[in-house]
Design a protein around this nucleic acid. Structure first.
Length: 329
DNA sequence: AAATCTCCCAACCGCGATTTA
DNA sequence: CTAAATCGCGGTTGGGAGATT
């Protein structure tokens, strides 16, 4: 049975021969792929367009990196997976020259096992309770909350500061974040006057003065995150990790959801200040790096910018997070 | 040395989203 | 506006290579 998309023609399947690779490579380098469905015919291949596309993306593209993943790449995958879950394409975007397929395979064959051997649930990135760890069995539920220590961000109205005593998500002991940034485990005190939240810039300034190099704390405390968590777009996040957010961060024991501007409100503020600017800019874009496509629409929020910020903070310590966000508040 | 097992990765499949006619 | 075509993504599979028995 062939693919639906090319059921009319006879198509070859399975591994690609060097001759086929050459044909496809030659065709695309001279003509570009255009419509993938026409590529096989024009390139003289008995393959379906879908297969050609996959072969190009995963193997023939000249900008592919290939080879074993570095420790840094591995940590990036783990860090982003903790936030996004199995969003391989999104994760791969942060690893130049790597494909989603490659990242997925690497996760399934290596990282997953490594996390399990460290007693971590690869879905939630939380510790697996010892009684569930026997035989390396990883249960889908149950491991989520048990080893999470509660920390709270107190209600704006009840206390003058919020405290973050734990990283919002547990980091593996091997995480460079743990080594490089002991401040992760320190208390962060951030003035949380109402005006501070009405003016995101003020909040950012507060954060800049307090542990501004702490990605996790800022990740938790930023108005953007609060928006994410409290909006329907939270489905973009790793649902397992998200339960951690909900259980221990914003809706924890004595915590109340913070009153922060919604994304829409932030956008309109942005528009008021700079009406010609229809998009928010990421740090990368502002620096002229490849467009990361972080345009916003009314219903969803692209996590790339958050992840970029998260990563930039964990990798580069020479810039403040306020700079990294570059929200143009 | 042969048979069997295990692991890895390239490729396939199905589905939802987006684009096009 | 709608249906068809196309694209892109994530889950899964199957075969080859190396390890083990």
């Amino acid at each position: 049975m062939g693919h639906k998309c090319c059921s009319k023609q006879k198509v070859k399947r399975g591994l690609w021969s060097p001759e086929e690779d050459e044909k496809l490579l030659n065709y695309i380098t001279t003509h570009g792929h255009g419509s993938w469905s026409t590529v096989p015919k024009l390139a003289g291949l008995q393959r379906c367009g879908k297969s050609c596309r996959l072969r190009w993306i995963n193997y023939l593209r000249p900008d592919l990196r290939r080879g074993t993943f570095s420790a840094e790449e591995e940590q990036i995958i783990i860090d982003i997976h903790r936030i996004l879950g199995n969003r391989w394409a999104q994760i791969a975007k942060h690893l130049p020259g790597r494909t989603d397929n490659e990242v997925k395979n690497f996760w399934n064959s290596c990282i997953k096992k490594k996390l399990i051997s460290q007693g971590l649930d690869p879905k939630t990135h939380n510790m697996i309770p010892s009684h569930e760890r026997a035989g390396n069995k990883v249960t889908r539920s149950g491991a989520t909350h048990s080893h999470q220590q509660t920390f709270s961000i107190t209600n704006v109205n009840s206390k003058p500061a919020m405290e973050i005593k734990q990283p919002i998500l547990p980091l593996p002991s091997t995480s460079p974040l743990n080594n490089a940034q002991p401040s992760l485990l320190q208390t962060v005190s951030v003035p949380t006057s109402t005006s501070g939240y009405e003016n995101p810039k003020a909040l950012m300034s507060s954060l800049q003065g307090h542990n501004s190099h702490d990605p996790i704390s800022l990740f938790c405390a930023s108005p953007i995150e609060n928006t994410l968590i409290s909006s329907s777009s939270s489905s973009s996040l790793n649902p397992y990790a998200l339960s951690t957010f909900e259980g221990n961060c914003l809706w924890g024991s004595n915590a109340m959801p913070l009153e922060v501007p919604s994304l829409g409100e932030l956008q309109s503020q942005e528009q008021e200040m700079n009406p010609s600017n229809t998009r928010m800019k990421t740090f990368n874009e502002a620096k002229g790096v490849e467009d990361m496509d972080v345009s916003f629409d009314s219903s969803s929020f692209d996590l790339d910018s958050v992840v970029s910020t998260f990563l930039s903070g964990s990798i580069r310590h020479d810039l403040t997070y306020v700079e990294d966000f570059a929200w143009n508040f």
